[in-house]
Design a protein around this nucleic acid. Structure first.
Length: 487
RNA sequence: GGCGCUAUCGUCUAACGGCUUAGGACGGAGCCCUCUCAAGGCUUAAAUACGGGUUCGAUUCCCGUUAGCGCUACCA
């Protein structure tokens, strides 16, 4: 529990509770988690809800739930108070206000009374004139008297930070090395809004400082505003954290990963039956790799091997095929009892939910189908015949495999099976061979129609495995009804 | 428009100036195995965006071009 005391590394995942956890967010959270765990540090969840209008009911609970599902347990955060809480920004407003006013007193920030309307017009003008920036620093040099007067009149106001007028700022990033930006292209950013809430820029700096965050690992979209944050750190006289800006996750067409082109919520993948192991493994490799050719990693392996310097710089396309493959691999690695549990759970919610199948039976199905399924649901979708007798027979296979003599052959074979007590796979096989011999036909002339008769389709595990799993009575029943239906 | 970031097979990526005929994985194609489908094994097609430098030598370093993306809010 007190792992944090072992190391100065403290990372945080700081989402805003505006909806579901995005897969990009999952990766950001994962990298933060991995670095913290690797260094025996502390992983923190902080909720950035300073925009009252964007708050979504239940979003925070959902975020926590999804993070926990993925196995990214946070050491400090909402409901898990450490020594640096509260971890929800709306509960820390006093702190931000104090900090903002301190900056005003020190001449590093100022009150701005410009109306939204004026700002909007200004922006339009600037765009039309093709000038950079959007605020003209109108209130930057307001006299003390003016400010007092406007305050007295109760004019709405914000606090803006003073960005140096000339010069440039260079900062280092763990992933991109040096980044330089000229002060002139930076606006006097609002740090405290008229409703008294801070903007992201103030809140993130204040919180990262007071929560003693050592590494700020976040998406690349924050790179351009990092200089503003650094100015703030300098104004406050605080030590800078290590910054690491992660490359973006992209759609197949290379645009920023978004809905419309597929699912972006972790929850969507969870519902589709993706394993958390696969999703975590997949997302970890979008921008990171261990440097050798291993690809199958569990969370614990990632913790051992993760380093920031192996994180790439360029955006990565989220391609489902590879995720599917990883899901397949991870499903194969799952211990049988776990798979059994998942299968039973899935069965309950499926069309055959009212039927009971005992564990040994299901285990047999699992063993037979394992290397043929990508998702747990595939056990039912790809081999429905293990859960109900065939309702129909695949026409393509019927055409290909069901010959006029098939009924006659299968009838004989059924009789042969009937004479067996409780046949093993091998006994089914030799019975079939024997029947073929007496009938003077090829094994295949029995095998294919039989597969069709018991499963309704032409694909699946070894035929004798199917027969054994189904059992003699069921096998014979299916042979009889196939003969009736397929004539 | 301005600013920034990025640029190796279709995709994820390896290569941290020479050991490279640029390696692996997913996906594709083919073959083998085989009662089918898988799995597995083998084989194969497929990339250093372009142009300049630096260097004895550039995928690797620098510059430019191009392209993509991001940011440019009293959103995060």
């Amino acid at each position: 529990m007190e792992e944090g005391s072992m190391s100065g590394v403290r990372t945080r995942f700081a989402p805003s509770p505006t909806g579901f956890l995005h897969v990009g967010g999952l990766r950001t959270a994962l990298y933060n988690y991995l670095l913290a765990k690797k260094e025996k540090g502390t992983f923190i969840l902080r909720i950035e809800d300073t925009d009252q209008s964007r708050k979504v009911e239940g979003a925070m609970e959902n975020l926590v739930d999804t993070l926990e599902w993925a196995g990214l347990h946070f050491d400090e955060g909402p409901g898990r108070e450490g020594n640096f809480g509260p971890y929800i920004q709306s509960q820390r407003i006093n702190l931000y206000q104090k900090c903002a006013h301190q900056l005003v007193e020190e001449g590093k920030a100022y009150y701005c009374f410009c109306t939204l309307d004026r700002l909007e017009k200004l922006r339009e003008q600037r765009i039309a004139a093709k000038l950079p920036g959007s605020y003209d620093r109108n209130c930057r040099d307001l006299s003390k008297v003016d400010v007092q007067e406007k305050m007295k009149r109760g004019e709405p106001h914000v606090i803006r930070m003073k960005v140096p007028l000339a010069g440039e700022l260079t900062f280092s990033d763990a992933i991109r090395e040096k980044v330089t930006i000229a002060y002139a292209v930076l606006d006097d950013q609002v740090i405290l809004k008229s409703d008294g809430y801070p903007t992201y820029h103030l809140a993130v700096v204040v919180d990262d400082h007071f929560m003693k965050i050592s590494h700020v690992i976040r998406g690349e979209e924050w790179l351009p505003s990092t200089p503003k944050h650094i100015i703030l750190y300098n104004y406050f006289g605080w030590e800078l954290p290590q910054f690491a800006h992660l490359p973006l996750l992209l759609n197949p067409d290379k645009s920023k990963l978004s809905k419309r082109q597929g699912d972006v919520a972790v929850e969507d993948y969870r519902e589709k039956g993706y394993l958390k192991e696969a999703l975590v493994n997949f997302v970890a490799f979008l921008g990171w790799n261990p440097g050798d050719e291993r690809e199958l990693f569990f969370l614990e392996d990632l913790v051992k091997e993760f380093t920031l310097d192996r994180v790439g710089k360029s955006g990565a396309v989220f391609n489902i095929e590879k995720l599917d493959w990883l899901n397949f691999e991870h499903l194969r690695k799952k211990p049988e009892p776990d798979v059994l549990c998942m299968l039973k759970d899935h069965l309950k919610r499926s069309a055959v939910g009212d039927k009971h199948f005992d564990d040994p039976y299901l285990l047999n199905v699992i063993r037979a189908m394992r290397e043929r399924v990508t998702f747990v649901k595939d056990f039912v979708e790809k081999s429905p015949y293990f859960f109900q007798s065939p309702k129909e027979y695949d026409p393509v296979d019927v055409k290909k495999r069901w010959k006029p003599e098939s009924s006659k052959y299968l009838k004989t074979l059924g009789e042969e099976f009937a004479a067996l007590a409780t046949p093993t796979k091998e006994e089914y096989e030799s019975a079939l061979h024997h029947t073929a011999q007496t009938l003077k036909i090829k094994n295949g002339d029995l095998i294919h129609p039989l597969r069709l008769a018991v499963s309704g389709m032409g694909t699946g595990p070894g035929l004798y495995d199917i027969l054994f799993i189904l059992g003699k009575d069921e096998t014979i029943r299916r042979i009889i009804s196939a003969i009736e239906i397929l004539y």
